[in-house]
Design a protein around this nucleic acid. Structure first.
Length: 314
DNA sequence: GAAATTTGACCGTG
DNA sequence: CACGGTCAAATTTC
């Protein structure tokens, strides 16, 4: 069993122990607290199971890379990803396949959880450090050094549906391109504070061809501008062991710099602690935050928990 | 008037 | 040479 899988299982066990120890407390709280914690546990164990299954499939089939990826995106009632088909998605898929093809699947971190309230449905972390240095020399383009994180984000169904949900940072659009084979243009954003703080963070946002309700958001580089934020949206490149869970935990980053829901993020010490201490998992908070940013997404479970009457009146 | 966005051009990579 | 990432001038928004 690979380290990441062990890590997932251990995290699940820890969360279960926490639930056990806090059961009396939770019993006196709204039922959603226990429910969400249970869901978080299920999510973690499901991810562990997926990774275990993925390993089996990867080892069973020499061209089994193809069987790896779809298992990461099970089409179950948790509403997570689907098979992808458009060109750019195929490219992303091929990228992942290539990465996964190097030995076992743990050469990359790839994790998909339930919709987390309809927000990020899947996430892929990849490092391009292995690219040849010769391709990084000139000033323009192909400067892919550093981490690349791909997220699938549900588009808001209210308000401006043309932009993905706020991720807690301020971005400045510097370009837009029509992408061959895609129906929707790709937007290029960099951190607003790029000049002031030499913040290298960038992101690309593109609506998915086969599911316009979702965006593919690709992040490049980490924020070095932590102006009003107590912690970066994404931590420094995590050690391989910590790639899966912590990255999802940084959904808490949605309550970062310019968050509109500080109260939620600050409702417990676990959110900020999670950034520094990977022992702490706070999926419910992430769920809450994401759900609040995505009030009308396909995964209504969490939002329904928060606002039982949310279905009506929208 | 500053900041953000738009958009055509430029340029590197494959 | 096509494609895609970035630049930068023009335009819009606040």
């Amino acid at each position: 069993m690979e380290d990441q899988t062990k890590f997932l299982i251990l995290q699940g066990c820890k969360l279960a122990r926490d639930l056990e120890s806090n059961l009396q407390t939770l019993a006196n709280q709204p039922q959603t607290s226990a429910t969400e914690t249970c869901e978080a546990i299920i999510r973690i164990f499901t991810s562990a199971l997926e990774k275990l299954m993925m390993n089996i499939n990867c080892k069973e089939s020499t061209e089994g890379h193809q069987s790896c990826f779809p298992r990461l995106l099970p089409d179950n009632n948790w509403g997570i990803g689907r098979q992808v088909g458009s060109d750019h998605q195929v490219r992303a898929k091929l990228h992942l396949k290539a990465e996964m093809g190097r030995g076992s699947c743990d050469s990359e971190s790839c994790a998909t959880f339930r919709g987390l309230g309809g927000g990020i449905l899947s996430m892929e972390v990849s490092s391009d450090l292995n690219k040849s240095a010769s391709s990084l020399q000139r000033s323009r383009r192909r400067r892919d050094e550093g981490q690349k994180r791909t997220m699938k984000v549900a588009a808001p169904q209210m308000g401006n549906t043309d932009i993905p949900p706020d991720d807690g940072h301020t971005w400045r659009k510097y370009g837009q391109k029509a992408i061959l084979g895609s129906n929707y243009p790709r937007g290029y954003y960099r951190c607003t504070h790029q000049k002031l703080y030499q913040c290298p963070a960038k992101k690309q946002v593109q609506r998915l061809d086969d599911d316009p309700h979702f965006f593919e958001v690709i992040y490049h580089g980490d924020h070095t501008c932590h102006m009003s934020s107590t912690a970066p949206l994404f931590p420094p490149p995590p050690p391989p062991l910590a790639n899966v869970i912590p990255m999802d935990l940084h959904l808490c980053g949605f309550s970062g710099a310019n968050s509109t829901i500080p109260a939620v993020a600050g409702s417990g010490s676990s959110t900020s602690a999670a950034r520094d201490d990977k022992e702490v998992i706070d999926y419910p908070v992430a769920d809450l935050a994401t759900a609040m940013f995505n009030p009308g997404t396909s995964s209504t479970t969490t939002i329904d928990m928060i606002f039982p009457n949310s279905k009506e009146g929208k």
